[in-house]
Design a binder for these strands. Structure first.
Lengths: 344, 344
DNA sequence: AAAGATGCCGTAAACGTTTACGATGACACA
DNA sequence: TGTGTCATCGTAAACGTTTACGGCATCTTT
């Protein structure tokens, strides 16, 4: 059922049908009514390809996420909540959110170029930003509206929202120091994710502020951002001559492996070694003893991501006068049993 | 950069450029080479809207998942693994998998109709099939290639793959009976999901086979398929005059709530009441005592879903001569500590 | 009543492709 | 030379929309 057939049934021109359906003002209310009724009757919905071709817009926004080993193996509980928030904003504008999975053996940059060049979407969210991220330079050059989940050194004035890793790292160090710890280990994530750097720098600064000399040996990098990675990293920390009394983990999945590594060494998290995880997650929620970590309101984050993106798109800019969004998203401490005061 | 500009740079017609890029035979190898080089140089990629409009195909396959309260609240670890499998098959055919999230306050049927009518995708996966599912009838009527994850009474000869709920229910009852249990409760999921019925019927049949008279009071339906739902359902089972010695849960998330409900009643899973969950999941993986449940190879399932769908699409049918896929997907028991033999 | 404004609608071009069809030239063969 | 075949390429239509433009009534104003 095309617009042509619909127009023939109504004995009017296709131009009028199109104007009626698109809410143009120069159409008789009576005929508009007839058009809508006929469209409903025949189940007519405009062909998106034709419409896109004509007006150069697809009414779809992509959210690109990478299926790295972490995501594909453990599944991902993070994005679903964010998507819900994004959609709650898009709903009002008849924008569709489509999730674009970058296969784990594909180059994210190449994948992005393909999607953009094919003009599949009007705008994009990208996540897992690297410290230097080709994708951002590319999107800016091509003038594609986008919003980055995560900071980066690349690009300049593009919109982004990043979780408050700095605040989290600082709060974690402060809390551990207040509880008597002075040898505090840090496990960084495996990849070149920007968050690893932000986290490490804040950790370093907090230690210095407390008059503690940072020990490079206490900062280890996980082989992979996974349970196994946490297991291995904790193992290396335990092997130090002078092992830490507390360990901070930049990924909560790794906490599971860390717990297990401690257990295998005859130690126990929260008794022999204090542990602080990062983001509260369903998977780490049932660890025993409960993990001290940080909570983030993912639905609200999704809403803010959406409005921040729309604010950069000419067609929606006036509806969202929020300016350039470059937010640090706050997280709140969820105290657990895994980091009690140090017994002397 | 359109095909027209590219053709002008090369001083040849746009028809020849198109034929060259699409691998037609009637084009000089020399000019084909020139075309490819120029395309690479200028970064030309065909506009998808124009191509779709002309040949009525989008090279995109949709996977529709619903953001019900379960998915959006707890995140979803299930689909990511399936997607990875699907993509591994699609990759060879330059098909893009796009995930279509149905907002939780939208009617899935209406959402599906919109996506299909807009011709956004060439084919579809649908999941969370209902016992009677309007969507299936609609897709068959519109002759849209699709594959259902989950059985349904609707439709007839469409392709589907369903997890082996019947086998799981049977195995669970057999195992519990072998361990001395005779009063076995069942917690069904909240919604009208078809799996709930399949599960319950197999449970019923297995009891009868063992000479146990099924007690309707022992089958309860959760208010919601969630931790809270499991909490409430377990509560109702415990309130029975003669409470069950074992409980089967059709959803592993509910196991978490069930554990907690037992704990609140001064009981313990695996000691006072045996518990068997359904699908192994990262979220329920760290319950203590460990939950007896069933494992499923989700990546392989994704591969099979993809080939099953392609087999119904004319353009790919000859590549995948697998006939009509209607599979029961096997699951394997993962023994845990939650269902020890009954002490008499 | 003439002139201008307004409401409503039809016409046709344009978006970027693919592809059926025909044209051209080269070549082989009788 | 005339005829047929083949390789290669150009032409133009078609896909389904949206929208600028112009035209025709009808209404308002002087």
């Amino acid at each position: 059922m095309s617009i042509r057939e619909l127009a023939q049934h109504l004995n009017i021109s296709i131009g009028t049908v199109s104007r009626a359906l698109n809410g143009r003002s120069d159409v008789n209310p009576e005929t508009r009514k007839r058009v809508f009724e006929a469209a409903a009757k025949f189940g007519y919905v405009p062909n998106q390809s034709g419409r896109s071709l004509r007006q150069g817009t697809t009414n779809a926004i992509g959210f690109m996420i990478e299926m790295n080993s972490e995501t594909s193996l453990h599944g991902d509980t993070f994005f679903m909540s964010v998507f819900a928030g994004v959609q709650s904003v898009f709903k009002a504008h008849h924008l569709d959110l489509v999730v674009l999975l970058c296969p784990f053996d594909d180059d994210p940059y190449e994948h992005l170029r393909r999607v953009v060049s094919r003009r599949f979407v009007d705008g994009l969210f990208i996540s897992a930003t690297q410290r230097h991220d080709q994708r951002i330079d590319y999107l800016i050059e091509r003038e594609i509206p986008f919003m980055a989940l995560g900071r980066s050194l690349s690009g300049g004035s593009h919109p982004w929202i990043d979780l408050d890793f700095e605040g989290v790292a600082t709060a974690a160090v402060d809390r551990l120091v207040a509880r008597g710890h002075r040898r505090i280990g840090l496990v960084k994530p495996a990849s070149e994710l920007n968050l690893g750097y932000v986290f490490a720098e804040a950790y370093h600064a907090a230690l210095v502020r407390h008059g503690i000399r940072p020990d490079p040996d206490l900062v280890v990098r996980a082989d992979q951002t996974s349970e196994e990675g946490g297991y291995g990293a904790m193992g290396r920390l335990l092997a130090l001559d002078e092992r830490p009394s507390a360990v901070m983990l930049v990924n909560e999945i790794m906490a599971i492996g860390a717990y297990r590594r401690l257990h295998d060494a005859g130690l126990q998290a929260g008794r022999d070694v204090a542990v602080i995880g990062f983001r509260q997650s369903p998977q780490a929620r049932f660890l025993s003893p409960t993990l001290t970590c940080f909570d983030v309101s993912l639905f609200d984050l999704g809403c803010r991501l959406a409005t921040g993106l729309l604010a950069t798109m000419p067609a929606y800019r006036d509806l969202y006068p929020v300016g350039l969004v470059q937010d640090i998203w706050p997280m709140t401490l969820v105290p657990g049993e895994s980091d009690p005061p140090l017994l002397v």
